[in-house]
Amino acid sequence: GTLHLNGVTVKVPSLEKAIKAAKKFAKKYNLEVQVHGNTVHVH
């Protein structure tokens, strides 16, 4: 999967790991997580 954090793109081995990391990051910075196919966006 691919993880987008505020314009930074990170390749992640699995989508589940990407979503987990995204949710952790989003919670910390009070951001929103959106999943588009195998790409996770945090903004």
Rank of each mutant, 00 (worst) to 15 (best):
E16N: 09
S14V: 04
G1A: 15
A21S: 06
V10M: 12
K27L: 06
A21N: 04
A26N: 00
E16W: 12
L31A: 04
L3K: 02
G1R: 05
K11D: 07
N38Q: 06
A18Q: 01
K23G: 02
K28Q: 07
Q34L: 13
A26R: 04
H36V: 14
S14Y: 07
K27P: 01
E16L: 12
P13M: 11
S14D: 13
N6D: 05
K28M: 08
L15C: 04
K23T: 08
K28Y: 07
P13A: 13
A18T: 05
V12E: 01
E32F: 10
L15N: 00
T39F: 10
K24V: 06
H36F: 10
L5Y: 15
A21T: 05
L15V: 07
E16Q: 11
N6P: 10
V42M: 11
V8Q: 06
V12L: 15
K23R: 13
E16C: 14
V33W: 07
I19W: 07
N30S: 07
L5H: 05
A18L: 13
T9G: 04
H41F: 14
H36E: 12
H41Y: 15
A22I: 15
V42T: 03
G1D: 07
K23W: 10
A21F: 14
S14P: 03
T39P: 02
N6Y: 12
G7T: 07
L3S: 02
V40K: 02
H36A: 08
V33Q: 02
E32V: 14
L31V: 06
V35A: 04
V33Y: 05
T2M: 13
G1N: 07
K17G: 07
T9S: 10
G7Y: 07
A18H: 01
V10E: 02
V40N: 02
E16P: 07
A22C: 14
L31S: 01
N38L: 10
A18I: 09
V33A: 01
V8P: 03
V12N: 04
K11F: 13
F25V: 03
V40W: 03
L31M: 11
G7K: 07
Q34G: 05
K17Y: 13
L5E: 02
V33T: 02
E16S: 12
Q34K: 11
K24F: 10
H4F: 09
T39M: 10
F25M: 05
A22D: 00
P13R: 13
A18F: 09
H41E: 13
G37I: 07
V35Y: 05
K28A: 06
A22V: 15
T39Y: 10
K24T: 06
V10G: 02
P13G: 12
P13Y: 10
P13H: 11
V10I: 15
Q34W: 14
K11M: 11
V35P: 02
H36G: 03
E32H: 12
V40Q: 02
A22Q: 00
L3I: 12
K11G: 06
Q34C: 15
A26F: 08
L15A: 01
K27N: 04
A21I: 14
K28F: 08
N30L: 07
G37P: 03
K11C: 15
N6Q: 08
A26E: 00
N6A: 10
H4T: 09
P13F: 09
H4A: 05
T9Q: 08
G7Q: 06
P13E: 10
H36K: 09
G7F: 11
I19F: 05
G7M: 08
A22P: 00
L31N: 02
T9L: 14
E16V: 12
A21C: 15
A26V: 03
K17R: 12
G37D: 05
E16H: 12
K27R: 11
T39D: 08
